[in-house]
């Protein structure tokens, strides 16, 4: 087995373990490359089925191509597709593009808060009806107790201390100092009522591994990751007012892999095109403790 096959096998094991142990499980799909690889791994784990609902948090500032891509795959792969949003903040224009709050607060409103309340079932969830191809309010309001997330340890420091099965308390808080032990493929899958768990099957993958895998498996991705002729591409996808492309002429997966292997970006953070990370130094660590992914 080569390195990618080992990574794949372990991630598949973790997905099956999550599916076996949790009744109310969901998987976050940001439409980005990592969570799309995760979705692909779910098809691997469950033999071309995805028996886990996919939850997307719609900030309404996603690049339109992303939403189009989401719904196309959802229909094609017969996904149980759900989205949630912070309708209040959007209605009252409590967003950065509206000029009313700073970037971090905007992220907190449109992502962290929306996510928290979508997962808990307090706010409406919208579910794709495969017959009408339209979203409808989901009648299921049960909280999700297991949430599968595509974070990687190499993305930034605070993520390197994560576990594959990482408990969160009632307030979504993450206790960095007191993490459960993980050994011999045995993970913390028992939880006191009221607590929940984040599952991280991609923890050991690097940005390079992700692209190598996308290339090997021919996984469809959003074209924004590639240079469309103007010498720019996105390395990480977020909301358009806060994401800037990097200079690159990588036109396909193979080009990106070459680019990453030469170490062109080795001293530039992958998320450096994400403006919110830059405010308040460790902004992400703060957001993360509050439940941001």
């Amino acid at each position: 087995m080569d390195h990618l096959q080992k990574l794949e096998a372990h991630s598949v094991f973790l997905l099956r373990e999550a599916y076996r142990e949790f009744n109310n499980l969901c998987m976050l799909w940001s439409i980005g490359k990592d969570s799309t690889v995760l979705l692909w791994l779910a098809r691997k784990a469950f033999f071309d089925h995805v028996p886990i609902p996919l939850v997307h948090i719609d900030t309404h500032y996603k690049i339109p191509e992303m939403i189009e891509y989401r719904d196309r795959l959802a229909l094609k792969w017969k996904l149980n597709m759900i989205y949630g949003q912070n309708s209040e903040a959007l209605k009252n224009k409590r967003t950065f593009p509206d000029g009313n709050v700073d970037r971090i607060t905007c992220c907190r409103n449109l992502k962290s808060e929306a996510l928290k309340h979508t997962l808990s079932g307090e706010w409406s969830r919208y579910k794709l009806n495969h017959e009408t191809q339209k979203y409808e309010v989901d009648s299921n309001k049960d909280p999700y107790t297991g949430v599968i997330v595509g974070v990687r340890a190499d993305e930034e420091g605070s993520r390197s201390k994560e576990r594959y099965f990482s408990p969160r308390d009632k307030e979504n808080e993450w206790g960095v100092g007191d993490q459960p032990p993980e050994f011999w493929n045995q993970y913390k899958t028992d939880f006191a009522p009221g607590t929940h768990v984040r599952i991280h099957p991609l923890l050991d993958w690097t940005e390079l591994n992700i692209w190598e895998y996308i290339e090997r498996e021919k996984i469809p991705t959003v074209s924004l990751y590639f240079d469309q002729g103007n010498g720019q591409r996105y390395r990480s996808l977020g909301c358009y007012p806060c994401t800037t492309p990097v200079v690159s002429d990588a036109k396909n997966e193979a080009d990106i892999i070459k680019e990453l292997r030469t170490g062109r970006f080795s001293n530039i953070a992958e998320r450096s095109g994400r403006e919110q990370d830059k405010e308040d130094g460790g902004g992400l660590e703060t957001l993360r403790r509050e439940g941001y992914m």
Binding site: E156, E270, G282, L284
Partner: peptide
């Protein structure tokens, strides 16, 4: 290296 991680550079002292 830990400090650098906080700034998002992909080196990692935990690994």
């Amino acid at each position: 290296l830990k400090d650098e991680q906080a700034q998002g550079i992909t080196i990692d002292a935990a690994r």
